[in-house]
Design a protein around this nucleic acid. Sequence first.
DNA 1: CATCATAATTGAAACGTTTCAATTGTTTTT
DNA 2: AAAAACAATTGAAACGTTTCAATTATGATG
Lengths: 324, 324
Amino acid sequence: MPSIKDVADLAGVGVGTVSRVINKNPTVKPETREKVNAAIKKLNYIPNEVARNFKMQKSTMVALLLPSIWHPFFSEFAYYIEDALDKEGYKLMLCNSGGRPDKEIYYLDMLNQNKVAGIIGITYNEIEDSVSTDIPIISLDRHFGKKITCVTSDNYTGGQMAVKELVKAGVTKVAYLGITSSVYSEVLLRKKGFMDEAEAQGIEFVTYEEHDAVYDDDTFFDDFFSKKEHQDVNGIFANTDLLAAKYIDKAKQKGIITPKDVKVIGYDGIQDNKLFRPFLSTIRQPVEEMARMSVELLLRKIEGETLDQDIYRVPVMYRKGETT
Amino acid sequence: MPSIKDVADLAGVGVGTVSRVINKNPTVKPETREKVNAAIKKLNYIPNEVARNFKMQKSTMVALLLPSIWHPFFSEFAYYIEDALDKEGYKLMLCNSGGRPDKEIYYLDMLNQNKVAGIIGITYNEIEDSVSTDIPIISLDRHFGKKITCVTSDNYTGGQMAVKELVKAGVTKVAYLGITSSVYSEVLLRKKGFMDEAEAQGIEFVTYEEHDAVYDDDTFFDDFFSKKEHQDVNGIFANTDLLAAKYIDKAKQKGIITPKDVKVIGYDGIQDNKLFRPFLSTIRQPVEEMARMSVELLLRKIEGETLDQDIYRVPVMYRKGETT
DNA sequence: CATCATAATTGAAACGTTTCAATTGTTTTT
DNA sequence: AAAAACAATTGAAACGTTTCAATTATGATG
């Protein structure tokens, strides 16, 4: 594998000159540039990016740390993240934490050692302490503190919207169905928006949640359907589209048909849910916008800029499907 | 940021010793080890992985190059790839090519410069020439040549299975619906298996395909439904689950109900298609197994081993849903 | 106690870049 | 023609590791 030295020798110039040619530094005579380029071509030389990163003491690798790329919301998010990063000349490293604290810490350590340029994290745990101060971080949906900038959708308004739409659809008692993950989660605001709006509208409501860690489809829903106070619920706001889809499925098994017997609204608006049947009504987060904003903010942090806000919220919108 | 030199100085030993402690080399006196570890802790030293990779002239980064992580099949595949890699101490870099030849080449160049340890590629184009000889590659579903090992499902048998199951379900005329991507694709065997089996069973059949590049949902299906020879088709074998789901959807709009009027079988078996409605009958590829095999073979190549086969095929199975 | 064998440790060299002070070459000015 | 200004080029040093030949410390043996 030829090195810059080999190129320099063949071209009959110094290594510095070759370096300048490669980096398109203008202070090199066109004639010399030609010689060097010829040598590069002849030797089939390609610059060693690892050596460069090492010498420069910085990389263009950004890590995306999330529970599971398998989840459709995350995979869409990851898609846009990669696209945005690539446009700016950055690369993406993917880390699935499974939402487990130990794995999140493990990955953060690893990313530290590997001197990634920055991290975009969707984590379930308090990570502020586990992360070196000099590595910029953007966190999706969790707000930890000043050090870690948070990008999230307007969860509170989303929760309100859901209630408004359910009421508009004529329901008389609404339930919030949630998988909670972390106390730091901005997702909690979905519930708050839901409750406040239900209160404001003067409509009966219940909330039903389970912690992520102990979550299991069957027990969750069996439990839900068994409770007396859930019998007359005819409006559901589910935490996520996936949860909404599962609810509709389980409800159907109990003979409760959507949208005849119950109206359902999800949250997320994952693109492909056109293929879920019935087509879900949902509060859509602008995934692409959130991804691009995350990248933009992260790169600004990497450049050394200090951001003016701790939390950036992007607006959500209601998308009517067949379940309301 | 403290370096190994700082640790050595503080502990009063040479850098070599510190290095040996870090790398758990046994030839270091326990007592010395203690001193070094104390110094490491005190300085909060973390080894610089970039420098190490540079010096060692190798990395533990493996790239996954695919059309789009957004696609549920790929995101499931990526999930298992990451999991398998992590278990072996490797990291995953994600590259979305969009299936575009230029972007595939662009990424391969980049990966070359970045000296990744290996590549797992799901590419649409002839890439054998674009890839340096000394970087091990595994290709999913495309067979290019000896240099690039191919992992794929048993597409031919899968195609046969589909016909058998459709016939078993009582259909009288079957259609193969396909999005073709590349002439190198092993996916073509799905069609061949389909045709051969239809022939063998003596059942009427048609095939209908569109090239990936010019593919568009609406024109594709409008075209399909408009053709005279498609009117009496009552069995569909779609190339992928996603395509099957779209077919069912479009057919419904035409008043053709699945599975009453037409039986449908997809290909892939993406896990979450439990949420597609109706629940799809499909030829399931063992995604996890394919992912783990890809990683295992790649790592063996990275270790310098020569693999005994060019193509590794893993068996598929039929999973009955509600569409047959 | 001297000698030898072995265990433990040292630190310079090397990996492939970039950078920058120093040098050389070229042009302009006086 | 000499001096000054500017343009282009050079190559050693540095980045943080690992490695390994050389050195030193320790223990065993006669």
